[in-house]
Simulated assay, not measured.
Amino acid sequence: MSAHAAIAVTSKGVIETIEVPTEEPQDDEIYVKVEYTAVIPPEVYMVDRGMFIESYPYILGFTTAGTVMKVGNNVENFKPNDRVTTYAYGPSHNKGMQQYVNQSSSVCAKIPDSLSLEAAATIPDNFVCAFYTLFNQLSLPMPSSFPASVDPPLADTPILIYGAGTTAGQYMIRLLHLAHYKNIIVTASTMHHEYLRSLGATHAFDYRSFTLIEDLNRAVGGPNKLSVAVDCISAINTMVNIKDVLSPTGTVALLMPVKEGISLNVDEGKNMILDLPLPAKLNPFEKETNIIGVRTFFYQADPVLKEKLMPVILPDLLEKGLIGATPYRVLDQGNLQQRAEQALGLHRTNQVHGEKIIVKIH
């Protein structure tokens, strides 16, 4: 059996280049030559703390972009030479930081010729997270097409995206705008405000501002008037700020895990909460507040999303130019392991702001 190179966590704190078997696709899989993959914050937790890893070695990479080489016997909507991007959230052998990978066709999307492979690698994980959060976890009505042909029932209701400079937050703004929501309030660094407004944000506030709570309350119509919020950071300070503007009976969606610290970075001595309920000492919300813990890896429990989100909805949005890549940085110098180490280091040292880190594979 032939083999190919992959970047894997081989023990706590250690990544190495390993050789893995090159296997034929199963009936419902496509076999992809991987050109690019994204490195995301949870991979730092995986490497440094061993989180989410059941056994070593464990391959990294939660997205891929590349070219279809072969398809399984039951695959009808993909063919060799198709350019695709995939959400590589499955087990180790399906991860993206390897030269070749087999993926279920349900996590794959064709991309238009106008979109580069490196740009396509930025999209799947945060697009899926945003779509799943809004239209499944928060139960906002999913339009039958994009842009929506009619306004949703709560089109004018204020919706807060806290940490909207994150790539997941950027896709949430765009999707809400395409669904005809008209009061999209966001927090982010001021450097991102103009871009976020171009995506559809109606109000943008600096999360560092001393008047943040006052500004947010004014935007939503008064104290405790906000009924829907998403926390893209899910740290102690972000939850406290949301609590100060959210109605006691409102709904907040937390992108898991919840961090005990005050940022996306997690020190060894700090805890991460992987599931609800929140421990009392970390929960600032009122007892009546509806708290949702969003775990994107479960999105395929929704049969409609499993069947359509990646194979149908995303390609349609890309072809129409309604969804595109978020800002990104490509790492293409040195060998593959050096590029992976560099990507992880950028996340560890908080040098990633509103962009995706993309690693060239081939």
Rank of each mutant, 00 (worst) to 15 (best):
E194P: 03
E16R: 09
T67L: 07
L331V: 14
A201P: 01
A179H: 04
M272V: 15
T202C: 09
V47Y: 00
G345K: 11
L212E: 09
T17G: 10
Q351W: 07
M256I: 03
S104F: 04
V128E: 08
L176A: 09
S247E: 10
D82S: 08
A119H: 05
P141N: 14
T296L: 05
T86M: 06
I242C: 04
D206L: 11
P42F: 09
V14D: 14
S55F: 03
P279G: 14
E319D: 00
V32I: 15
F52S: 10
E260R: 09
T122C: 07
D156I: 05
F298I: 00
V128Y: 07
H203T: 00
T187M: 02
N237W: 01
P223S: 11
N81H: 09
T238H: 01
R83L: 02
G72D: 05
L254C: 03
L60K: 12
S104Q: 08
A179K: 05
S106K: 12
A201I: 02
K360A: 12
P42W: 10
L318W: 06
P91S: 00
H177G: 08
S189N: 12
T10I: 10
Q170A: 15
G261V: 00
Y58R: 02
E54N: 00
E355F: 12
R208H: 14
A120D: 03
L336H: 10
P21N: 13
S247M: 12
I53C: 02
A280R: 14
I30S: 11
T190F: 00
K360I: 04
I184C: 11
V330R: 03
D275F: 09
E23K: 13
I123F: 08
I358F: 13
T289N: 06
E19V: 12
I111H: 08
P257T: 13
L178A: 08
I18A: 13
G50L: 05
S104Y: 07
E24N: 06
L140M: 11
Q342N: 12
Y87W: 04
H177M: 08
S247H: 11
Y195A: 12
T85Q: 01
L278P: 02
P248F: 10
T86V: 13
P124Y: 00
N74C: 15
E268D: 14
I233K: 11
F78E: 04
K79S: 12
L305R: 07
M239I: 06
S234P: 03
P223I: 03
E43M: 07
P143Q: 09
K95L: 02
Y207T: 15
S105D: 02
V352P: 08
L246W: 04
Q351D: 10
G169R: 03
D206A: 13
K360F: 04
L196H: 05
L274G: 14
V20Y: 14
I15V: 13
V352L: 13
I53M: 01
L346G: 11
S55T: 08
V266S: 07
A5Q: 15
